[in-house]
Simulated scan of single mutants.
Amino acid sequence: MDKHASRLLLSALLLAGLATPALADGKAALATLPDNLRGLYVGAEQNVQASTFHGFAMPVKPWKWCHSESYQGNPWRVALTNHFKSLVGAFQADTMC
């Protein structure tokens, strides 16, 4: 994966959590789901809450990245951690960050 594609993927993943609508009413939140998913949440309206990221404001630069793994014994976890380190390194090297 090239540097540009990695940045786009990381940005999309981070923004996906921020794009969640902050709705106080569980039924209103479920109404935003497609029909095929809405059926999976019948009776669960009372458990749907506003997004944790509602009202989120970016902190001032410089930013820090924290990635925590509970176990580094699996090769795929080590590979993921190393990939995140390379992505963060690319962002740090970029003059825009």
Rank of each mutant, 00 (worst) to 15 (best):
Y41S: 04
S86I: 05
E45D: 11
G89F: 02
Q46N: 05
L15V: 12
E69R: 04
D35L: 04
N74I: 07
S11I: 11
L18V: 06
T32G: 09
V88F: 13
A16L: 12
L80V: 11
E69K: 03
D35C: 03
W65M: 08
D25T: 06
T32L: 15
A44R: 11
G43M: 12
H4W: 14
F56K: 00
V48N: 05
S51V: 06
W65P: 04
L37A: 07
V42Y: 00
C66G: 08
L23V: 09
A16F: 12
N47K: 04
G17P: 04
N36S: 14
A44G: 03
Y41D: 02
T52I: 12
G17L: 03
R38F: 12
A5V: 07
C66P: 02
G73N: 10
K3Y: 02
A50N: 01
L13V: 03
T95W: 10
L10Q: 06
S6W: 12
L14Q: 07
M58F: 14
A57V: 01
K3W: 10
F56Y: 15
T20S: 09
L23T: 01
D35M: 02
L37P: 02
A29I: 04
W65S: 10
L23F: 14
T20R: 13
F53C: 10
Y71H: 10
